[in-house]
């Protein structure tokens, strides 16, 4: 038993040395279509991306866009909304998929495409880097993540 505890201590120290910086430097904005009249709090956004709430107040199904798990913006979003890394949040969603408990899977697209799709779809929500907002007409910002 003692050598397993020793091995665990070594692994813990390795973990400390490889711990990733949680904070990504990029500002991120959460966007919805400009025709979406529903106000959203940070908690609402967590409920939507956490697969708890899947419909808007008008009863329409929410189309949820996510960025690739290795993107800086997704890391910043995950840390702010869930308090966890993008990798952990992605693993939670994968778990819901194979346990057949997922209700509204997120769709993974690049940031530029997310801006375009949210602009076209009144039932969509997404997030993009702030720097991309000037090229994203027909969307409105519901939350800014610094």
């Amino acid at each position: 038993m003692r050598h397993y505890i020793t091995a665990l201590m070594i692994l813990m120290s390795l973990g400390l040395s490889t711990m990733q910086s949680a904070a990504a430097g990029e500002r991120v904005v959460v966007i919805v279509n400009k025709d979406n009249q529903q106000s959203l709090s940070q908690q609402d956004i967590k409920n939507i991306y956490g697969d708890i709430v899947i419909q808007w107040e008008n009863g329409k199904n929410i189309t949820v866009y996510n960025l690739p798990v290795d993107s800086e913006s997704r890391e910043a979003f995950s840390q702010k909304i869930f308090g966890e890394s993008a990798q952990r949040v992605a693993a939670d969603e994968s778990n819901r998929k194979i346990t057949n408990t997922i209700k509204n899977p997120t769709k993974i697209k690049g940031a530029r495409l997310v801006a375009q799709l949210v602009a076209k779809n009144p039932d969509a929500i997404g997030y993009i880097p702030l720097s991309m907002l000037k090229n994203a007409p027909n969307v409105k910002v519901v939350l800014q993540i610094d």
Binding site: L8, M12, G15, L16, Q20, Q87
Partner: peptide
């Protein structure tokens, strides 16, 4: 306990 890529 989650620490970076490790879970203990």
């Amino acid at each position: 306990y989650d620490i970076g890529k490790w879970t203990l």
